[in-house]
């Protein structure tokens, strides 16, 4: 037993050390920092000035941050319904016994493994291009000249062109999770339902969906985490500027405030930390609500 103790310590220490330095310490310091006014991120603690919750109050009254939060909410809600909806639909189709399932599955997953900068470059400079883009060419071909002239990178539509491209890349991952959930449902349930005369759609509604509750919970949590981390896409859509109101998210706002490349905003580390804390709270809140709403069934998936 004593030998084991030595081994446990030797084997765990490096991992714990890394964990301490890259997660535990930063989390604590960010929480602390959010209650202080900190000019530069790397200022030592004795230069910090305690301001209570005023960072949070300031944020709530900052119109740019409000816009960023609303954008995030829109991405979360609208994008979430679209992505999880399509993912579930695709999962249902691919588990229904179609030929070529693994090829379909692989192709749908491809956008997830491609670098986000490369992916958004393809969308912006090819799919959405006004002169030779995929959508432009397609609408020209079918004679919808008006539609072919759409400018996806300006005006009101810009946010939605961003959302569509982001959603397109996210579907594959959630589809895989749904698929593995569906495949874990015992086949004999479906068989006896078929004998009882329930058709495919009825089976999906009465068997698959209720049994996927747990999987659904996981998906919503992961989706929230990925929306909170929404950064690259927003930056790509506002390039050459580093941010722009129509596509700004809290993450981008935090970057501007703390690493301030934009002239007008003053640098404030404390404010940036407060954004981080709010985002972590958002994730926790969603997680809590999902746990309250959906109780885990006996059938753990």
């Amino acid at each position: 037993m004593k030998k084991n103790k030595k081994m446990i310590i030797c084997f765990l220490t490096p991992a714990l050390l890394f964990f301490l330095l890259t997660f535990l310490y930063p989390i604590c310091r960010t929480v602390l920092m959010s209650f202080f006014s900190v000019e530069a991120v790397n200022d030592p603690m004795d230069l910090w000035e305690f301001v209570g919750i005023s960072n949070f109050v300031d944020l709530m009254n900052t119109s740019v941050f409000q816009v960023a939060m609303i954008n995030m909410l829109k991405i979360w809600l609208l994008g979430g319904v679209i992505v999880l909806g399509i993912a579930l639909l695709f999962a249902a189709i691919l588990t229904s016994g179609v030929v070529g399932k693994s090829v379909y599955r692989a192709i749908i997953y491809i956008p997830n493994i491609i670098n986000a900068v490369a992916m958004s470059t393809m969308w912006i400079n090819y799919v959405y291009n006004k002169r030779f883009g995929l959508l432009h060419t397609f609408f020209e071909k079918i004679g919808a000249h008006e539609l072919a002239m759409t400018d996806y990178m300006n005006g009101e539509i810009k946010f939605y062109s961003l959302l569509a491209a982001f959603c397109f890349g996210s579907v594959g991952y959630f589809m895989l999770i749904f698929m593995s959930g569906i495949e874990q449902i015992p086949q004999d349930i479906f068989e006896s339902a078929t004998i009882d005369g329930a058709n495919k759609i009825r089976q999906f509604k009465s068997i698959t969906l209720p049994l996927l509750k747990g999987v659904f919970k996981t998906c919503v949590t992961f989706w929230t985490v990925s929306v909170v981390g929404f950064f690259v896409w927003s930056q790509m859509w506002s390039a050459p500027l580093s941010s722009e109101l129509s596509t700004i998210t809290p993450f981008v706002y935090m970057y501007n405030v703390t690493f301030g490349t934009v002239g007008s905003t003053q640098r404030d580390g404390g404010l940036g930390a407060a954004v981080g804390v709010i985002m972590a709270l958002v994730v926790m809140l969603v997680f809590g609500i999902m746990n309250k709403l959906i109780k885990n069934d006996d059938l753990e998936l």
């Binding site: 714990l16 964990f19 997660f23 310091r29 200022d43 030592p44 935090m254 985002m279």
Partner: peptide
């Protein structure tokens, strides 16, 4: 405790940890 901390860490947004990491690296 270690197991569940690791699982929790997977859903911690980067935005939450990046500032202290930056000052740590500078120091």
């Amino acid at each position: 405790v270690i197991r569940s901390s690791f699982i929790t860490a997977m859903s911690i947004p980067q935005i939450m940890i990046v500032l202290p990491l930056f000052s740590l690296a500078t120091r």
